[in-house]
Nucleic acid binder design. Structure first.
Length: 576
DNA sequence: GCCGTTTTCGGCCCGACTGTTTTCAGTCG
């Protein structure tokens, strides 16, 4: 019977491991199919086990990259908890393929060879084998390979894998600034998952053009942020930065810059679709350009390449290898909300509760960031650990805001609250206190483990409360740290639509809503806002991450209410 | 194993770099 212990991640790992075993044994084409299916599942927001419960194999087959055979395998996993085909592979090759291939320089073939020759089953086995200098004796490997593998293992153990974009983007921009100053350099751009604004980043990919490649290569290797050079060719250098993150720099002639930008921005799946499209038009696409025979059709700009393929330019945030190509063919790519177009922040915490700065300091920082209003949304008393406000302190805070508003020019502070939704769906503050505010935001911070039906009812009860304007971080997730709570989002969205409550796109490390829900909310005409959840004056940059999230969800400026001036925003937040 | 503005069969993305080799296999993005 279906169990909750079968997570999507577990199924993804199983499919990926199967792909690796098949690759190791030179099975043609199937590995790609299993990887594509795993990728399709990774893009899902709902649990496969739940989908299967709801509508069986039919739903599973609807996932891109999943056909008859893999759908059957997923069915077997969610109903029995195991997969015979996988178990047989594991019996024949009882080593940890996923973990071993996670090591840089170790692919499926090397892992298999190490198992066959040395009996290596785990990363620890391999580390011991390297130390005993027996890896270099294996045919096809040598001393240098052994050294590389050893370093790869050390790196893996020191590093917890991908990092949240909030931590990586500032470093990447800093490196770009440094490289732009080097003599001869004409362009430097961030590419890869950072340019696509994925929520977690594995490495920093940069591309550059220069009239003096030797100088750039030498200068790049010498910048203080680089701790080790891993690879160095004429047009590609791979390094590790001091913070532990990996980075690549590609150096290219200006005439193929667009093709290179396109290629290294990815995603891999998007690139594959583009190349297949090129082939169908009797052309060939690579990082050097789009070619018809030997003739280069387009290469200087991304736009020219998309155009030659019969597509409009696709913003990087949408390049995931799903339906964006089809949309580009039909000229249906929306005009995405531009960065920097948020006029006011609707969630900030001050030192009245768990923020680091006074309301005054937060307001000045907001103004400096270019905003014209902000809502003060301190926590409420149920969250004792944040020293949450009760009715009396909230009134006192209101008086302070009145005073500040008289002093500030060209900036408005809105009285608000992040009112806790109690376990039974009631709110943490009395209605008379809420009525005195400019707007009311609500959110869940406790009892995350409630059953799906109860959690849904709890949140819908809060949405129905006539004074509520915004539901904050609607699914409760924190990237890399906390999974979303179980909730029927389709019902929550319908309630938000019916009662005129906006959903927040939280730009902090929560990145909640997920982009798939954003896209769905827009289709359903649910109101949306973006906020920073700033607890410190430096946190307004989270708005940029919130916008990125909205862009990934195909949002236009008109879809996000706080792109409007303050008076219009308050009007738009009015309940229906 | 998946998929369809060439297709329900016959295709399936492209190139740089490295190390171990003396022409290429494996890995990566």
């Amino acid at each position: 019977m279906p169990t909750h212990s079968i997570t999507n991640q577990k199924i993804i790992n199983t499919l990926r491991e199967i792909a690796l075993y098949l690759r190791a044994t030179d099975v043609p084409f199937k590995p790609q199919a299993y990887e594509t299916a795993a990728e399709g599942i990774a893009g899902l927001e709902s649990e496969l086990a739940d989908m299967y419960k709801r509508c069986g194999k039919k739903c599973i087959k609807g996932i891109p990259g999943v056909g008859e055979s893999i759908a059957e395998k997923i069915e077997e996993i969610v109903t029995t908890g195991r997969l015979e085909f996988y178990a047989e592979l594991k019996k024949k090759y009882p080593f940890d393929m996923l973990a071993l291939t996670n090591i840089q320089e170790v692919g499926p073939k090397t892992a298999l060879k190490l198992y066959k020759e040395l009996g290596v089953k785990t990363v620890n086995d391999l580390q011991r084998a390297c130390k005993a200098n027996i890896v270099e004796k294996v045919e096809g490997l040598g001393h240098k390979s052994e050294q590389k593998i050893m370093r790869g293992i050390a790196f893996l153990k020191s590093n917890k894998g991908r990092r949240i974009i909030h931590d990586v983007l500032p470093l990447a921009r800093h490196i770009v600034e440094r490289l732009e100053k080097i003599d001869g350099v004409t362009h430097v751009d961030i590419t890869g998952s950072l340019r696509r604004r994925k929520e977690t980043i594995g490495d920093i990919d940069l591309v550059a053009t220069t009239s003096k490649p030797r100088e750039l290569i030498a200068a790049f290797k010498a910048i203080p942020e680089v701790s080790r050079v891993l690879e160095s060719g004429n047009e590609k250098i791979a390094v590790r930065y001091n913070s532990g993150i990996l980075g690549d720099l590609l150096i290219l002639p200006p005439e193929s810059y667009g093709a290179a930008l396109l290629h290294f921005t990815g995603s891999r799946e998007h690139n594959i679709l583009l190349r297949e499209l090129a082939i169908s038009k009797k052309m060939k696409l690579s990082e050097h350009g789009l070619f018809k025979g030997n003739k280069c059709v387009a290469s200087k700009t991304e736009e020219s390449i998309y155009k030659a393929l019969g597509l409009v330019w696709i913003p990087p945030e949408l390049r995931i290898g799903a339906d964006e190509i089809e949309a580009a063919k039909n000229n249906e790519i929306p005009d995405l909300i531009p960065y920097g177009s948020i006029k006011g922040d609707l969630q900030i915490q001050s030192s009245w509760t768990d923020g680091t700065a006074s309301i005054d300091e937060m307001a000045r920082a907001a103004k400096k960031y270019g905003l014209s209003y902000m809502a003060v949304t301190d926590h409420t008393k149920a969250l004792a650990m944040t020293h949450g406000l009760d009715e009396k302190r909230l009134r006192a805070q209101g008086r302070e805001i009145d005073k500040l508003n008289k002093k500030l020019r060209g900036f408005t502070i809105l009285k608000s609250t992040e009112c806790d939704i109690l376990k039974d769906g009631r709110l943490d503050l009395r209605d008379d206190a809420l009525r005195a505010l400019d707007l009311v935001t609500v959110s869940v911070h406790t009892f995350f483990e409630m059953p799906e039906r109860e959690m849904t009812a709890r949140i819908i009860a809060a949405i129905k409360h006539p004074l509520v304007n915004i539901l904050l971080h609607p699914t409760g997730r924190v990237v890399g740290r906390r999974a979303p709570y179980k909730i029927e989002m389709d019902r929550v969205m319908r309630a938000a639509k019916d009662f005129g409550v906006a959903l927040e796109i939280n730009g902090s490390e929560r990145l909640d809503l997920h982009e798939q829900y954003i896209r769905e909310a827009i289709k359903q005409k649910v109101k949306l806002v973006i906020s920073s959840d700033a607890h410190d004056p430096s946190h307004y940059v989270n708005l940029e991450h919130g916008i990125a999230q909205a862009r990934k969800g195909w949002a236009r400026k008109a879809d996000i209410l706080n792109t409007k001036p303050c008076d219009q925003l308050l009007k738009a937040l009015k309940r229906v």
